[in-house]
Design a protein around this nucleic acid. Sequence first.
DNA 1: CAGGCTACCTGCCCGC
DNA 2: TGCGGGCAGGTAGCCT
Length: 286
Amino acid sequence: MPELPEVEVVRRGLEDHMVGHTIVSATVLHPRAARNQLGGGPEIEANIAGLRVSAAKRRGKFLWLELIDAPSGETRPDLGLLVHLGMSGQMLIKEPDAPISPHLRAKVELDNGDEVWFVDQRTFGYWWLGDLVDGVPERVSHIATDVLDESADFSAIARNLKSRKSEIKRLLLNQEIVSGIGNIYADEMLWQAKIHPLQRADRLSLARLEELLQAGKDVMSKALAQGGTSFDALYVNVDGDSGYFALSLNAYAQTGEPCGRCGTLIIRESFMNRGSHYCPNCQKRR
DNA sequence: CAGGCTACCTGCCCGC
DNA sequence: TGCGGGCAGGTAGCCT
């Protein structure tokens, strides 16, 4: 369940079920789930047993579990299990002996008997066990703050956007400028702010760019409150339940539906090998 | 450095 | 019915 609100739903579920518990064992069943690990799945399996989960954190679409060495009494986490859900990843809390899922790629067993399964149909997601640098996994250091982060500086992000001569939607999808935005929420925030997806960022005022970021924060907050966006059973929380924000979408997947503001039919165009949905009346390219 | 394209996967849906 | 093509929430790494 890929974009920021969906990943945050998963993070909260892992926080509830994993923090304070010790990992008894890990099993990596598919090599692609550990493809970014130098030693592959065996490296995760060999190094994670006995560590206690002290927190579940997130930046943009990247989430990680902070791990401390329980026996040694070490309290400052310097190791984390990074989880990226890719296009189709799920983290599911399971009772022992739960019926097997066809796309189970990795799992851990906790000291209370629960298991945490990483199920991922398309295998774009992965786990990575590695060092935390300033509290963030090394692999996440290039990712920008996200719009729901209290420390996000919208003025600075707007200036960064304005310095670039490129289409605004391309920039919104670039996780190194502002993170957490994917195809759904890019289309939604652009609709909300009445900006054409191909509008060049340097032609927008700083005030408009800040409005756009605020629109992103608003739409993602509402999506989070409704458990995220789910079109099918691939996008679920740690208990396997879907969110309801798909019912509130104004642009994404609304091709041929009347715009909620003006009634003009929403259109879909291909951009960056994916669909862009927008209102051709409200969102004019200037 | 920025932008554009491709690769990595599985599964579903559509048209022929 | 079968098959090919297009499509799907993402990221990273090449080229130019």
